[in-house]
């Protein structure tokens, strides 16, 4: 299964992936509207690694779509589910905002929404063809790869 991988050696920490992730998951498909009128949050998060208060490296965090996802097990309403392709989804209609998934995710890759009524997580932008974070990364630091391709890329 193909997943989104981010390469620290290439990541600039510019934050464009976050901007486009928010846009992709907003009901508005326009960047400006998605940010000004919608309160979705990005499912991809850049963490800065600081040295002497200056960011020296960036770590991009997003759902790993685990083989045996703890978030799915912990979900009290059945909103979290793994589809036949292995992608972990959150069914917004079922989600009750208990945030159990947020607390059990070992990577901290699930974020609560601004109003705390639901969560935000990577769904690989199914329906867009290519995840928007991958498509819009200015330095090719984020890639959609399967396990074999990742091994090649890391060499």
């Amino acid at each position: 299964m193909k997943k989104v991988y981010a390469f620290e050696t290439k990541c600039l920490g510019c934050g464009l992936c976050e901007v486009y992730c928010r846009t992709a998951h907003s009901k508005f498909k326009d960047v400006v509207k998605a940010h000004n009128r919608d309160n979705v949050i990005s499912a991809i998060v850049i963490e800065n690694i600081f040295r002497q208060s200056k960011p020296i490296s960036y770590f991009v965090l997003q759902c790993r779509h685990c083989l045996s996802p703890r978030c799915v097990k912990a979900c009290i309403s059945g909103a979290m589910h793994k589809d036949e392709q292995g992608i972990v989804h959150n069914d917004k209609k079922r989600c009750v905002g208990c945030l159990s998934c947020v607390s059990v995710c070992p990577f901290g890759a699930i974020k609560k929404s601004r109003d705390c009524k639901t969560i935000s997580k990577c769904d690989l932008c199914v329906g867009y063809g290519e995840p928007l974070c991958v498509k819009n990364c200015p330095n090719d630091a984020i890639k959609l790869l399967d396990e074999n391709e990742v091994e090649v890329a890391l060499k």
Binding site: L12, G13, C14, G15, L16, E18, V19, V31, V32, H35, N36
Partner: peptide, 13 residues
């Protein structure tokens, strides 16, 4: 200002 979404990409870059 109408188009700025305060994403701060410019600040970081």
């Amino acid at each position: 200002e109408k188009r700025c979404i305060q994403c701060q990409v410019c600040v970081r870059q």
